[in-house]
């Protein structure tokens, strides 16, 4: 009795639980270590992208967050509950890439059926409206386009008004316009305070729609931060300036500087701290036409996830 009371206390406690709290996740399939030591902490309201090449462990991680796969080691808590308990309470839902739909019933019946499974669910018409498929409600699922089916999955995911929505490569196979509309719907919905976690291999999607990007490689997190932070992390920035009489040794000793190339008309400096370099050049030399260029996310992605990038 006492134990039961104690175990219930944290869930209703004053401090809001993290949307995702995963500690020390490991999962192997035979000899392949799909997830090799991942810790995740996601606060309510964040929009987080899992970015990584195929086989990086994105889907395996998501499956463990949803309780579809059991970690070999480690624990997952969703709003302070086990994944299965969080699903039973409608606190987490997911939009999967393919499948998961009965072909022989209509869009509306599918949503009604799913709604009937939850203790509390949003009105069916409202959810169809928010997913932008209210006028396709009477169409049979097998007559729907890929984009419409994906919106249907999204509608099903919204029914329980979950605090956490997980999307596994949600726009694969959609055209550019479909992807944009889909993300607009997600963004608008997330403004209500929903936590969104999505896996993608589209860099521009992660860049455009996530507040935070978690870069995965070989089952481990290799970078975690805003898009700008990750771009920096990979290879820093390049500072160019027209300058004469520069002391190469002093520049090379500045914090974060990786290389200094003196050229006929100036200097080219690779650095992780472009501010320090710029400050030095502008204050301590006759530098003009100073230019700072950053790498794009794709460069960062390639640098951080390629095999030579981080030979252990």
């Amino acid at each position: 009795m006492t134990q039961q009371l104690l175990s219930q206390a944290p869930a209703q406690g004053v401090a809001a639980s993290a949307a995702v709290d995963a500690v020390g996740l490991y999962k192997a399939f035979g000899k392949v270590h799909a997830v090799n030591g991942i810790d995740l902490h996601i606060e309510p309201g964040e929009i987080v992208a899992f970015l990584g090449p195929n086989g990086a462990g994105k889907t395996t991680t998501i499956d463990m967050l949803l309780g579809l796969g059991q970690p070999d080691q480690g624990t997952v808590k969703i709003f302070g509950h086990s994944p299965r308990a969080a699903i039973a309470r409608g606190q987490v839902s997911a939009v999967m890439q393919t499948g998961g739909l009965l072909k022989d019933i209509t869009v509306r019946k599918t949503v009604q059926l799913t709604a009937s499974l939850f203790a509390n669910s949003q009105p069916v018409d409202e959810v169809l409206e928010r997913a932008g498929i209210r006028d396709t409600g009477d169409r049979r699922v097998d007559k729907c386009s890929g984009g419409q089916q994906q919106r249907l999955r999204f509608a099903m995911g919204l029914l329980s008004d979950p605090g956490l929505l997980i999307l596994d490569e949600p726009t694969t196979g959609m055209d550019v316009e479909g992807r944009r509309d889909f993300w607009q719907a997600i963004r608008a919905d997330a403004a209500r305070g929903r936590t969104v976690v999505f896996a993608t291999h589209y860099l521009d999607e992660a860049d455009a729609y996530a507040d935070r990007i978690i870069l995965l490689r070989r089952g481990q997190i290799v970078a975690d931060g805003t898009a700008a932070e990750i771009k920096n992390l990979a290879s820093g920035r390049i500072v160019r300036a027209t300058v004469t009489g520069l002391d190469q040794a002093i520049v090379a000793a500045l914090p974060g500087v990786e290389s200094v190339e003196l050229r006929q008309d100036g200097v080219l400096i690779r650095t992780k701290d472009s501010d320090a370099v710029a400050r030095y050049l502008l204050n301590q030399s006759n530098a003009t036409d100073l230019e700072i260029t950053s790498h794009n996310l794709e460069d960062a992605f390639v640098a951080l996830t390629s095999d030579e990038g981080s030979a252990a």
Binding site: T98, G99, L101, L117
Partner: peptide, 10 residues
């Protein structure tokens, strides 16, 4: 894939 979908419901 419907049985997998059902596992994401109560």
């Amino acid at each position: 894939g419907w049985s997998r979908q059902l596992r994401l419901t109560p």
